[in-house]
Design a protein around this nucleic acid. Sequence first.
DNA 1: AGTTGTCGAGACGGATCGTCTCGATAAGAA
DNA 2: TTCTTATCGAGACGATCCGTCTCGACAACT
Lengths: 207, 207
Amino acid sequence: MRYGARMPTAQQPSTGRRRNPATRAAILGTAFDVVAELGYARLTIEKVAAQAGVGKQTIYRWWPNKGALVLDAVLERSLGPGEPGDLPDSGDLEDDLTAVLVATVEEFADPAFDRALRGLTAAIIEDPELSQAYRERLDEPMRDLKRRRLRRAQEAGQLDADVDLDLAVDLIFAPVTRRWTERSGDLTPDGVRAIVRGALRGLAGSV
Amino acid sequence: MRYGARMPTAQQPSTGRRRNPATRAAILGTAFDVVAELGYARLTIEKVAAQAGVGKQTIYRWWPNKGALVLDAVLERSLGPGEPGDLPDSGDLEDDLTAVLVATVEEFADPAFDRALRGLTAAIIEDPELSQAYRERLDEPMRDLKRRRLRRAQEAGQLDADVDLDLAVDLIFAPVTRRWTERSGDLTPDGVRAIVRGALRGLAGSV
DNA sequence: AGTTGTCGAGACGGATCGTCTCGATAAGAA
DNA sequence: TTCTTATCGAGACGATCCGTCTCGACAACT
């Protein structure tokens, strides 16, 4: 299964009827709704097709499987048309990172978004190709924003100059993701701030 | 679906034929093999039953669904009969944590174990009840070992006395899990050591 | 000897899979 | 315009798997 070859964004051939953007939008919108309501395991192509008022073949023509469909659905819905802007930069790194993570946790609190993202995550874990597509289209762009904010912090002298930025991103953001996926651990604003503070100051800072 | 009520460890009634432990073992062993070969999505109860030489009903009698079956299969195979011993304590916290994480990464390198654990993780993300069972039977016991090691480090003055141990566990272990699930990031011994060092010293340690 | 629960086997109706074909339609090419 | 090509909705198809149910054999305790 190759992603990117017959993906929904494949280029048009020179002749023939063109793809209907409204159909694409209806499919992705319905796919998001279904995964948000039933989760990934109980999402079926037939259900999406019927609920979107679309033939099954129309879905199979553009997406190789459930995972690719859900990835596009989540991308379309969560990111929307706008370019992702930079992370906040108030001058206080700890405050800014906490704000970003609190906003993330608030998104998880929306049951529809929570279930949709869980569905996508479950699909990604088992499918290396989908995982790569996710990385390139969602994770890596977000990571880039985080790295940029951290680099500014280094320039401002708020972060050690020699720390690897990918390590820093993982240290700060991975604990929140873990608490979310495993449904255990403190995800309140205070708990999130403690993670940021711990990552910045270190667990053995005063010894 | 209630886990723990008709789980495989339910107590025997006073009379009637007893459950065959060999049958249970055959089912769990086959379930592990199947999820290790095909992954969770393509594992079916029918396949496990046929391959284990067992009636479908025998599986449905003891496990409510795929997820519960795979959880037991992984628990049985990975933990085995022995009690999980304590984490190493050489006196050097950084070395010990690095060793534990390197061992974890080496387990991920076994394709069978990798796929089985991915299958279980995918199931857990979408099923709150299964996630709770996983937490109680696998995650929390492991977490306890980690907390104990960290507490000894506090007593030895190698860790700040006021840090929350659950926060510490997440900071140290979550980054490795993230790199594994998303298949991106440095999982070499050096990369793992960098995570431990970063968590202990902090990203803004010398500013 | 009687009771009770487990076991392997497989039938069952239903859901969904992914492929295939159909007739209608739209858009560029000749 | 006319022809060619691709998309669209609809649904038939054989296949797999779901979860439930029933059967006859068997084992363990009363």
